[in-house]
């Protein structure tokens, strides 16, 4: 019943991590090495360590994301250290949004965001394939309409 996220999100996040921290490592190493002496260049190891630490952490976080469409509600589970599980009954959904930023679009990804009357409801599913995101949106809208109720 649980559906995991497609690997696109992990690829995107890891690529962003490597690009940004890789650049930072290079920049720190080069600048400090040239202007402050080779010993100082060791500081470039910090972003490198962050990169090596971040790689598996991103993987664990990505694996922790999953969602399930049950008969009457949508279930979203996420987080490793700070675990969070959200249940949103279909009848309470006020709005379903599909968003996709420029980077996400480049990787062919889209997020589905649910809004209820409570602003605290933070129900977002990131990193879906656009087709799946649209299917989910249409299905949630349909189910929400069938069970819709006021406040």
């Amino acid at each position: 019943m649980w559906i995991a996220l497609p690997p696109g999100l992990l690829r995107m996040r890891r690529l962003l991590l490597v690009v940004w921290l890789g650049l930072l490592t290079l920049a720190t190493g080069l600048l400090l090495g040239l202007f402050a002496g080779p010993a100082w260049a060791a500081f470039a190891l910090l972003p490198l360590a962050a990169l090596l630490w971040g790689w598996p952490v991103l993987g664990r976080n990505w694996r922790s994301w999953r969602y399930a469409e049950r008969a009457d509600d949508l279930l979203i589970s996420r987080g490793v250290l700070w675990h969070e599980e959200t249940v949103v009954p279909y009848g309470r959904m006020q709005l379903v949004e599909v968003t996709s930023g420029p980077v996400e679009r480049h990787f062919g990804l889209a997020s589905v965001q649910l809004h209820t009357a409570a602003a605290a409801t933070d129900a977002r599913i990131p990193g879906l394939v656009p087709a799946e995101a649209e299917r989910l949106r249409d299905r949630l809208t349909e189910l929400g309409e069938a069970r819709s109720a006021g406040l």
Partner: peptide
């Protein structure tokens, strides 16, 4: 009847 969503949270 007024519950909008239910969440479970667990820190380390």
């Amino acid at each position: 009847a007024k519950v909008q969503s239910v969440r479970l949270e667990q820190g380390p």
